[in-house]
Design a protein around this nucleic acid. Structure first.
Lengths: 254, 254
DNA sequence: CGAGGTGTTGAATCACGTCAATCTATGTGG
DNA sequence: CCACATAGATTGACGTGATTCAACACCTCG
């Protein structure tokens, strides 16, 4: 369960570009994972990379298991190396809003006032690198360039969060689904994964919780996009984009 | 218009605590404005404070005027010293989502990849301190503690953004309005301003654009809260909180 | 007094949610 | 191999909360 086994469901990524939730570090100098080259790693010297490798441990987590719970003290930071993690907030009565999905290469671990203000849970079997806070913080303290980069990352996160607020507050169901597909197509493309057909890493329910809709509305929206020839759906988890122009139009990149 | 005149509509603030959009700096060492004491200023030495004062200029802007437009190069940073600024994103067809309101003491000025990814516009006559990017950046570079503080601020912003996503995606109209009132009551209290009655700094339309609702729905929600004895509304801009418990319940701090 | 900006209210409509039935794919055991 | 169970997705019928459109009330200002 915490073995360093194989059978990756969504392989290691070395994506560059914009972040998913809480900072795409692309690879956190996690040299045990075989992931080295990135914006952050470019800043660290070899010795520091080795140091990160030393403080780090790896673990596998099963679908439904939590990485962090809202309110947890931020004693660890994580990078995802395989799988999919959903980050979300919830209300007492069970309503949930997913604020982002973490894919391989993404970073999780900026607590606010010593606490995580959100929960994170594995969607599928996932592999994480775990860094204890204390030595990680020391590394950051000793490398101002790294701290600067982290600011940039969190700032990019904020930009994405603002985009998502616009989506949640003002877009229609079809537009939301189109945005979702474009977002994942973009992230997959940057990671070098196949984009057409696009293999959705999450089910309808999680898409709904991400887009602020009901599961049924998401399903209907998919059907509508299929009927109007924008998409085809070979199976539940795969999407072929037939009319990219129309999809962009719905996604309203503006 | 750019005079350092009087008639403040919402006076200088020295609030502490959580940030509004893009970093409450509480006071940016902007010593010309008479604002000195804050978390950030505690980090700067006297010489640096004087330096900030030297590079800074002040200006007044009128309601409806823009501070920044989406896409602007981030050549300046700003702190609000009087008034109210709305920060928002919009779609081509005119739909708008306000992502935050800036009150006195709040900071605006973290571009992403050299561009502001949002627009900011004065809601009422407002006073700003304007800092040219270059020397400000140099100041940050020379003070690692300051950079660290900035990271903390942006991270707090992100936490607020996630809360707002939950609101936009999953809360009912009444809950959204309750959250709005609680948020502003909190910010006002921290700034030392009267909270009961609470003087709303913005109109129904802007509240609607912040909460992802229509203007009419916001109005109806206010009426409903009034009819059920949660609030009384002496006039359009004032709110008396009668049943704080019920309001908290609606706001669902969880 | 009337004009214009802002907020409220009502009536009709609609997009989305809810509930429930059905379908499909996958897996299990006899 | 088939019967059966299970989980996820789809679809339909229906209900409802929020939007839209429109009328009206209120306040300030010329």
């Amino acid at each position: 369960m915490t073995e360093i086994a194989s059978e990756p469901q969504l392989g290691p990524a070395f994506a560059s570009g914009p972040c998913s939730l809480h900072g795409r570090v692309e690879d956190f100098g996690c040299h045990e994972c075989g992931a080295r080259r990135t914006a952050i790693c470019g800043i660290l010297d070899d010795e520091q990379i080795v140091e990160m490798g030393r403080m780090m441990t790896q673990k596998w987590i099963e679908p439904g298991q939590f990485v962090v719970l809202e309110g947890d003290p931020g004693n660890h930071a994580y990078t995802v190396t395989e799988g999919v993690i959903k980050v979300f907030k919830s209300l007492v009565d069970g309503r949930v809003q997913i604020t982002g999905f973490l894919l391989p290469g993404d970073f999780l671990g900026m607590p606010s006032r010593g606490q995580f203000m959100y929960s994170a849970e594995a969607v599928i079997r996932s592999r994480l690198c775990v860094f204890p806070r204390r030595p990680l913080q020391e590394l950051f303290d000793s490398s101002p360039g790294l701290e600067k980069r982290l600011l940039e990352i969190v700032n990019d996160e904020l930009t994405l969060a603002q985009d998502h607020m616009l989506l949640l507050g003002r877009r229609t169901a079809d537009e939301r689904v189109a945005c979702f597909l474009l977002e994942f197509a973009g992230r997959f493309a940057r990671a070098g994964w196949p984009v057409n057909p696009l293999t959705l890493p999450v089910g309808r329910g999680d898409i709904a919780d991400y887009l602020g809709l009901s599961l049924e509305t998401v399903s209907r929206s998919f059907s509508r996009l299929k009927k109007t020839g924008v998409l085809s759906l070979p199976n539940k988890r795969q999407v072929v984009i037939l009319d990219k122009e129309r999809l962009d139009e719905l996604g309203g990149r503006a």
